[in-house]
Amino acid sequence: MSSHMSSRGLPEFELLIPRTSPEAMDMLAQHRDQLSILNGGTALWNYVRGRNRVTPYVLSLSALKGLDYINEIPGDGLRIGAKATIAQLIEHPAVSAKYAALHESGYWFGNPTVRNMATVMGNVLRASPSADCSCALLALGCQVILQNKSGQRAVDIDDFWLSYDVTARKPDELAVEIRIPEPKATTRSAFQRLTRVRQDLAKLNVAVRLEMDKGVCQQARIAIGCVGPTTMRVKKTEALLQGKAINDSLLEQLATSVRGEISPIDDQRSTALYRQQVAGVIVKRTISRAAADKGATQ
């Protein structure tokens, strides 16, 4: 991991701990790209250690109140505050009941300690193609609410990751909330990942959301991670599902289609060839499981 001379301590920076949201907005406006946002810390500090450098300022969300919520709003959907942790996510009854893919992504995420620290928003902001919750969020569809001094805007998750490690968040903005639309009674979703050992980043992850109607898929969203610079949807494959009954021959078609839509690389966790070979398999399995409405956390 480190090819630089490493050190025990973190590199130097000035820590800002705003107590209110306006104070935070002011700091963001003032320091812009000279500032990193510190939420759970699990991603940021390893990112910093891996490069042995950090922005001059680090803004900690630790003292901001009221951002650690997960609220279900009937008729609307799920709202996840910027500081809500993965542990909160998987303990939330509405998440396990209605947002299976997201629940499963949190269930398999990291380990209990990391889940206590890491936040759902942090996972999205890290803009890593291996991020598990991000994969589920892309399949479910959601909006990221960004706020600066002059107001809020919502960015669709499909437009949020611009490339590896780059998001649509502007330097003066704070990502404050994730909004996931409420699923219909016929919406099905699932998540699956492959890792080297249990505690690991994904070498491949897949999440799907299917709108089902009497065994026929009306609409599908399929998100795949670790096969390109960002977690991505395979839209041609999604289109193949539209209006089709899910059966073995369709699943085979999907698997073939997926292989044509992804461009994985070799890295420490796996190889491009392997990812090409298994992506279709995992997509097939995840779709089958979603369609059958079977959980994968037990």
Partner: peptide, 14 residues
């Protein structure tokens, strides 16, 4: 892979 990120040891579930 000079870290536990990429040098993977068996954990309790493995």
């Amino acid at each position: 892979n000079n870290s536990f990120f990429d040098y993977k040891l068996f954990g309790p579930l493995d």
